[in-house]
Nucleic acid binder design. Structure first.
Lengths: 200, 200
DNA sequence: TAGACAAACGGACTTGGGTCCGTTTACTCT
DNA sequence: AGAGTAAACGGACCCAAGTCCGTTTGTCTA
């Protein structure tokens, strides 16, 4: 096995220049359209037109609409992810699980409140889209680790994340439940679910 | 205010004969198509064609696709609802809240396992459809009553129902989590969330 | 720098949910 | 029975997501 072959195996061929250019053009166009007209303005056709590319290009770059919107949100979400992995406690490592979980949900709800429409779009663009998003998998792992001493951390983590589904919270807001009340409800459930010995 | 006016106020004008006939024709057609080809065969156009009615008729009768599928599920779900309201404990009235809640989730998971595809279709046909379905509202009230002594029964009931969202459970099955494991996870969460004094 | 090839391109096309509106039909009241 | 009316009808139409495939373009090698 020669070096060349090894190299090929190692490096996934890097993105062509035009592809990279179009990726950012599309993202910028999407950002612009959303800023002007909200989620209603975010149709794939409109984004493609605004970006000056064909519609096929958008789908090749981002897979589907959900992928496009997730990419738009990527930056913000990445910051939260880094804070969880490298940041100070209680969000970052060091604090006891229940407190880390609470800190996470608190931070995530802030993020959700700031971007509810986009997150909802990315989660409901197609059935099951929510679970395919990279960030979901990441949060799921994080929570499962925090629940490691519970009977089924894997299932429990899914249940916990269910509380911050964009669709659910859109509904709660529509029913006049404010973010403060949602925060309190989530916090209380987190306490009871994450910490086996908790009972206030 | 005369009698006639009172009567008009009281009785919502009953369904016209042709309307009723078409309602059942459409439901039968939908049932047939689903039996033959599963959810993939359940397009509104196909249902309308099979029923021998226009597409507009389907939408007038059922509102949207989600409504049509909910109507298909109605029978089964009604049985469960009756068991909850009039049946024997622990599903029906009489047992302590935690046990009623457990019995409900157990029964609902059976129902879900039997009709997962259809329930998923009805819940994800459009964003937020889940919360607009009559049954959702019913279950929500039931659970909120069972949690009456918790700080925020309304929010908590939504969280509990999140655990049996068809979309989530489809994903769990796809990840090789079986119904037995799902049942256990749900039961454990119900215990901890519904009963303030529970800690096994 | 030429030529080969994979990758990217783009827009016509397909599919499916949902709307619209001119026409038809079941009921009601006399 | 016959006229009036509200409701129901149906299919053409619209919109938006996602696919397909013939064409173009960047990149790598000689």
């Amino acid at each position: 096995m020669n070096d060349e072959l090894l190299q090929v195996l190692r490096r996934p061929p890097r993105e062509r220049a035009d592809a990279a250019r179009n990726r950012s053009r599309v993202l910028e166009a999407a950002g612009r359209l959303f800023a002007e007209g909200g989620v209603a303005a975010l149709t794939v056709d409109a984004v493609a037109r605004e970006a000056g590319v064909g519609k096929g290009t958008v789908f090749r770059r981002f897979g589907d609409k959900s992928g496009l919107v997730s990419a738009l949100l990527d930056q913000r979400e990445r910051e939260l992810q880094e804070a969880v992995v490298f940041g100070a406690p209680p969000l970052g490592p060091g604090a006891p699980p229940r407190e880390r979980a609470r800190a996470f949900f608190d931070a995530y709800l802030t993020y959700l409140a700031d971007h509810l429409d986009l997150v909802r779009l990315s989660e409901t663009a197609s059935p099951g889209a929510r679970f395919r998003i990279g960030a979901y998998v990441f949060w799921h792992r994080h929570l499962a680790l925090l629940c490691a001493d519970r009977p089924d951390p894997d299932h429990l983590a899914h249940v916990l994340l269910g509380m911050v589904a964009a669709d659910l919270n859109t509904e709660l807001l529509a029913q006049d439940m404010g973010w403060d009340r949602i925060r309190a409800g989530v916090a209380s459930a987190v306490d009871r679910l994450v910490d086996p010995s908790y009972s206030p």
